[in-house]
Design a protein around this nucleic acid. Structure first.
Length: 499
DNA sequence: TTAGAGTTGATTTT
DNA sequence: AAAATCAACTCTAA
C-alpha cells in the first residue's frame, strides 16, 4: 500500500537537521510539504512587519531548498486546525509529520490536529528538534517536575543527559508531491482555505519595508547557515565571546568588520584539494566577496534564525563544539560564552515547558506577585520612545524600526519600564516585545521579562540600569542616539559645526 | 542556620 | 582597564 505523507512546517523552516522531514520521506510514495499561514493572526496588530517579512523570506527560501530536492512548499492560507485535518482527508494522506512545538498554544493546536488525524487512522510523528534536548526528557529529570530556576542547576541537569544528539543530514532528494496542479489541490480543501502562495507584506495589510530598511538580515535557512558559518570562521570572536561585554550601541555594519577578523588562524585543512579551493590565486581567501553584504551588530544576530528554526540548535551546538575542541580550552565558558547562550535558550525553554502560566504573573508559581501598575500614559511613552531619556527612547525607536535591539538594550528598557523607573507590569512590556521583535520567542521573552523585573531568576533589585549612565557608558559620542533620534542631530548653540 | 553565589550596576580607586 | 567598594536581594547547598 502506498504511503502519502503530509509534512507540516511551522517552526523548523529548514531541510537540514529535520527529523520530521526524514520521517515523512521514509518509504513514502509522495510527500506534501505544507505551511499554513493564518492571515487572521498575521496582522499588524499582532505581529510586527519585520518579523512577518523575515518569515516570508524564510518560506521562499524553504520552497527553493525543497525544489532543489524535487519537491516544493505549498503555502496555504487558513486556520491550521481546520486546514490540516481537511488536507489529510482530501489528499488521502496516511502519515502526518511535524516538528514538536512545546509552546502552550502550539500544544493545544497540535492536540486538536492529532485527535482528528488519529480518528482518520493517520499515523502522526512529531519528533523533538527545535531544542538541543527533548523537553520531556529534561523535565523527567526535575524533582516534582519543577524545572530549576537557576542556570547552574540547569547546566548540571543538561550535562546529566550527555551531549545533545547530532543533527541529522538533509535528504538529497524528496519523494514528489501529490499529483495534480496546486490550484486543484487547494480547491479540494474547500472554504477552510482562503488562499495560497507566499503573500506580500502589502497583501497582509502591512506597509511595505524597503530592501535597505528594517531588520538588516534576510530570513531563511540558506542565509542563516551562511551567517552561522561566517561567525564560526571568526575564531577570535568566538573564542573571546562574552555576552555582557558586547556593545549594545554598536550600529549594524559589515560582518567582517563587526567580528574584527580572526586573529586565531584556522587549522589548515588536511585535504590539499580543500586547501586549493579555499585559497584564491592571490593567496587571499575567496570568502570576502560575499561577506560585505552581511550586516551584523555586536552579537551574532542569529536569534531570528533560531526562533523560526532556519538554523538548528543542534547544528549550531555541534559546529561550535568542533571549533571549541580545536581551541583546546582557550575560550570563554558558559554562562557568558556563545555556547552559554545556546544553553540559556534551553534553560528558558525548559522553564516555560514545565511552568503553567509562564507568560503571566497570576497563577505562575515561579513568579513573584507584585502590585504593578498598568498606567497607559507611562506605557505609551515607553513604547513610542517618548520618555525624554534619549538612551531609552533610541532603543525603543530601533525596536519599532528594525524589530531588533541588542540584548543589553532590552535589559535597559525592560528595567526602566518595570522595577527601575515606571513600575509598569512586565506583561505589558513583554507584549510589545512579542509583537515587535524579529526573534520574539515565547520562552525567552517571558523568561527575560521575569528576570529583568526581578519576578524570578534574578533578585538583586537594587542593581538598576541608569537610563542615562548605562547608555553613556557605551555610546560615548552619541552616534547611537543620533541615529535613532534624528532630532538630536541638530546641535543648538553658537557652534553648529562643532565636533 | 549560614555561607556563598548569582551572565551583563554604578562609582571610585588603582 | 581592572579591581575595590558600595549596599544588600534571594536561593541553594552544606
Amino acid at each position: 500500500m502506498s504511503t502519502r505523507s503530509l509534512l507540516w512546517f511551522r517552526k523548523g523552516l529548514r531541510v537540514h537537521d529535520n527529523p520530521a522531514l526524514l520521517r515523512a520521506c521514509d518509504g513514502a510514495t509522495s510527500v506534501m510539504p505544507v505551511f499554513v499561514l493564518d492571515p487572521w493572526f498575521m496582522s499588524p496588530a499582532r505581529v510586527g512587519g519585520n518579523r512577518v517579512r523575515f518569515l516570508l523570506e524564510s518560506l521562499r527560501d524553504l520552497d527553493a531548498s525543497l525544489q532543489q530536492r524535487g519537491s516544493r512548499l505549498l503555502v496555504v492560507h487558513g486556520d491550521p486546525t481546520k486546514v490540516i485535518p481537511v488536507a489529510l482527508q482530501k489528499w488521502q494522506c496516511t502519515r502526518l509529520c511535524f516538528e514538536l512545538d512545546t509552546e502552550p498554544y502550539a500544544l493545544i493546536r497540535d492536540a486538536e490536529v492529532r485527535e482528528r488525524a488519529n480518528a482518520n487512522h493517520v499515523n502522526v510523528h512529531a519528533p523533538s528538534s527545535h531544542t538541543l534536548y527533548d523537553m520531556d526528557c529534561l523535565l523527567a529529570k526535575c524533582p516534582n517536575s519543577s524545572p530549576p530556576t537557576n542556570y547552574a542547576t540547569f547546566l548540571k541537569l543538561a550535562a546529566s543527559l550527555g551531549s545533545p544528539a547530532k543533527p541529522v543530514p538533509a535528504p538529497a532528494s524528496i519523494p514528489g508531491t501529490i499529483d495534480g496542479d496546486i490550484a486543484e489541490l487547494v480547491a479540494l480543501l474547500g472554504d477552510v482555505c482562503t488562499g495560497h502562495g507566499v503573500p506580500t507584506l502589502e497583501e497582509l495589510g502591512y506597509e511595505p519595508i524597503a530592501e535597505n530598511e528594517g531588520f538588516p538580515a534576510r530570513g531563511g535557512e540558506t542565509e542563516g547557515l551562511r551567517r552561522l558559518r561566517e561567525t564560526l570562521s571568526e575564531r577570535t570572536y568566538v573564542a573571546e565571546f562574552k555576552k555582557p561585554s558586547t556593545n549594545p550601541t554598536t550600529l549594524w555594519r559589515p560582518l567582517t568588520e563587526a567580528f574584527g577578523g580572526s586573529k586565531i588562524e584556522p587549522k589548515p585543512p588536511a585535504n590539499p584539494f580543500e586547501a586549493a579551493k579555499r585559497k584564491g590565486a592571490d593567496g587571499k581567501t575567496n570568502s570576502k566577496t560575499t561577506k560585505d553584504t552581511l550586516m551584523a551588530p555586536a552579537t551574532t544576530a542569529l536569534s531570528p534564525y533560531m526562533k523560526f528554526g532556519c538554523v538548528s540548535a543542534r547544528t549550531f551546538y555541534h559546529e561550535l563544539h568542533d571549533l571549541l575542541r580545536e581551541l583546546k580550552g582557550a575560550h570563554s565558558k558558559p554562562p557568558e560564552s556563545l555556547e552559554g547562550q545556546l544553553l540559556w535558550r534551553e534553560f528558558y525553554y525548559l522553564c516555560a515547558f514545565g511552568t503553567p502560566n509562564f507568560y503571566k504573573m497570576e497563577g505562575n508559581r515561579i513568579c513573584r506577585q507584585i502590585n504593578w501598575t498598568w498606567d497607559q500614559e507611562r506605557l505609551e511613552a515607553w513604547e513610542n520612545g517618548k520618555t525624554g531619556f534619549p538612551w531609552i527612547d533610541a532603543c525603543m525607536k530601533q525596536l519599532k524600526k528594525e524589530g531588533w535591539m541588542h540584548h543589553l538594550s532590552r535589559h535597559a528598557v525592560a528595567c526602566f519600564l518595570t522595577r527601575g523607573d515606571l513600575f509598569v507590569h512586565w506583561e505589558a512590556g513583554a507584549a510589545v516585545f512579542d509583537r515587535e521583535l524579529v526573534d520574539a520567542d515565547y520562552a525567552l521573552n517571558n523568561g527575560n521579562w521575569m528576570w529583568l523585573s526581578c519576578s524570578c531568576f534574578f533578585y538583586q533589585y537594587f542593581r538598576v540600569y541608569g537610563p542615562v549612565s548605562f547608555g553613556k557608558k557605551w555610546d560615548k559620542n552619541g552616534d547611537f542616539i543620533r541615529k535613532y533620534l534624528p532630532v538630536l542631530k541638530v546641535r543648538i548653540g553658537r557652534f553648529p559645526n562643532h565636533k
